[in-house]
C-alpha cells in the first residue's frame, strides 16, 4: 500500500465530512478532498498528516472561493434550487430537513476561523493539529473552540426558537 492510499483510507472519510460540513455540498467536498490527496502526492514528507491534509483542504476551499466569488454565488443559487428539487430519503423527515437548514445557517454565521476550528475538532484533530492547520497558537485553540461552540449553539437555538414561533403563528 502506497502512502497516498494509506492517507486516503485513513483520512478520506473525515476530510470529506469536514469539507461537506464546510461547503454544504458533498460532491464539491469530494472533489476538494481528491485534490488534497493529489497534492499530498507531491510532498516528499509530511510531518503531521492530518493537520496537513485539513490545512490544504481548507486552503483549497479558501483559494477557490477567493478566485471565483461569482461561482460561489452561483453555487449558492444552485444549492437553493437543488434543495427544492431534492427528493429526501425516506428517513429524512421535515423536522430533520429543518434542522439541517438551521444548522447550515448557524454554521455559516460563525467566523471563518471559528468554523474551521470547530469542524476540524469534530473530525478528531487535536489542538496542535488545528493550530498547525489554521496557523494559530496552540493556546488559542481552546478559546476559539469554546467561542465557536457557544455561538453555534446559541445561534442554532435562536433559529430554533423563531421556527417554533412561526409554527405557532401558523397554527393559530
Amino acid at each position: 500500500m502506497t502512502d497516498v492510499e494509506r492517507l486516503f483510507r485513513t483520512y478520506n472519510v473525515a476530510l470529506v465530512r469536514y469539507l461537506t460540513r464546510r461547503l454544504g455540498d458533498r460532491d464539491w467536498a469530494e472533489e476538494v478532498a481528491q485534490e488534497t490527496f493529489v497534492r499530498a502526492l507531491r510532498q516528499t514528507s509530511i510531518q503531521n498528516e492530518r493537520a496537513w491534509l485539513f490545512a490544504v483542504a481548507t486552503n483549497l476551499v479558501r483559494d477557490e472561493a477567493r478566485k471565483d466569488m461569482r461561482r460561489r454565488k452561483h453555487l449558492a443559487l444552485l444549492a437553493e434550487e437543488e434543495r427544492d428539487e431534492i427528493v429526501e430519503p425516506e428517513e429524512t423527515t421535515l423536522e430533520r430537513a429543518q434542522e439541517a437548514a438551521m444548522a447550515r445557517k448557524a454554521v455559516d454565521g460563525l467566523a471563518e476561523r471559528d468554523r474551521l476550528a470547530l469542524l476540524m475538532r469534530e473530525e478528531g484533530l487535536d489542538y496542535n493539529e488545528i493550530a498547525e492547520a489554521l496557523q494559530l497558537s496552540p493556546g488559542s485553540v481552546g478559546t476559539t473552540l469554546s467561542r465557536a461552540r457557544r455561538r453555534l449553539v446559541e445561534s442554532y437555538e435562536a433559529l430554533q426558537k423563531s421556527q417554533e414561533e412561526r409554527e405557532k403563528n401558523a397554527a393559530s
Binding site: R17, R21, G24, D25, R71, M102
Partner: peptide, 15 residues
Amino acid sequence: ILTALDNAPRGVIPA
C-alpha cells in the same frame, strides 16, 4: 448540530 450538515446535497458544482 454539525452532524445535521452531513445530509448535504450532491451535484451543486457547475463544473
